[in-house]
């Protein structure tokens, strides 16, 4: 019977049904299921489907946003019950749009997808300066820094951040994305990786920290 509820919970996340997602999360807790199991077998599989459907243009940003919102509401219930180790399963990522760029929808979606894949994401928000990136990387002992830019005026600032990271000898991987960013630009500024959408960003993040990535296909 609980198996059914897990399936329903995944479906609630896929449908972006926040109320249902909260209800089912509570129901599973009442049945004595531990938080980590609910996360791994109810919420994460749902977001996996969302990620793949988004990549394949079956669903678009509005649907992703409400799915992430449903996921987040359930996660808020589970979080106090999860150990630090449970939460830090896949590593820590610092995210931000670079200095002067106040557009953050792309970065927010990437952050949500990363969180939904088990990463701990520290989102520095918009208009993030190099010092703020460096401080956060050190403080959080981050594995990856993700930077986005929508504006051509701000994309060059990614190099400033990456240069500073190298200059200080910090061992952290860098990934970049955003509308005007290309693979060629990413290698030009010395980034470790480039992703053209949120789903690819998750795959890339996993590769950068050495997690094996399996190809998912949904009919």
């Amino acid at each position: 019977m609980t198996e059914e509820i897990f399936k329903e919970l995944s479906q609630a996340v896929i449908d972006g049904n926040k109320d249902k997602s909260i209800e089912l999360t509570n129901k599973l807790l009442e049945l004595g299921i531990d938080a980590k199991t609910i996360l791994d077998f109810g919420l994460l599989p749902g977001m996996d489907v969302v990620g793949i459907r988004f990549r394949d243009n079956i669903i678009f940003v509005p649907q992703v946003l409400i799915s992430a919102r449903a996921m987040k509401s359930s996660l808020a219930i589970l979080e106090p019950l999860l150990s630090k180790a449970d939460l830090k399963g896949s590593g820590t990522i610092i995210m931000g749009t670079v200095k002067g760029d106040i557009h953050d929808i792309g970065k927010n979606i990437v952050s949500m997808m990363l969180r939904s894949s088990g990463f701990t994401v520290i989102d520095l928000g918009i208009d993030t300066k190099v010092e703020k990136f460096i401080d956060a990387i050190k403080k959080e002992n981050a594995d990856i820094v993700g930077m986005s830019a929508l504006l051509t005026t701000t994309m060059g600032y990614m190099k400033v951040v990456i240069d500073k990271i190298k200059e200080e000898g910090i061992l952290v991987k860098t990934m970049v994305g955003g509308a005007p960013i290309s693979k060629a630009f990413a290698s030009e500024v010395g980034a470790d990786g480039y992703a053209k959408n949120a789903t690819d960003a998750v795959k890339l993040a996993k590769q950068l920290i050495g997690i094996e990535v399996k190809e998912n296909k949904i009919e």
Binding site: G16, P62, Q63, L65, I66, R69, I105, N108
Partner: peptide, 11 residues
């Protein structure tokens, strides 16, 4: 703001 508007059309 973009995200809230996009959720609004779903809600």
């Amino acid at each position: 703001n973009y995200e809230y508007a996009l959720m609004a059309i779903m809600d």
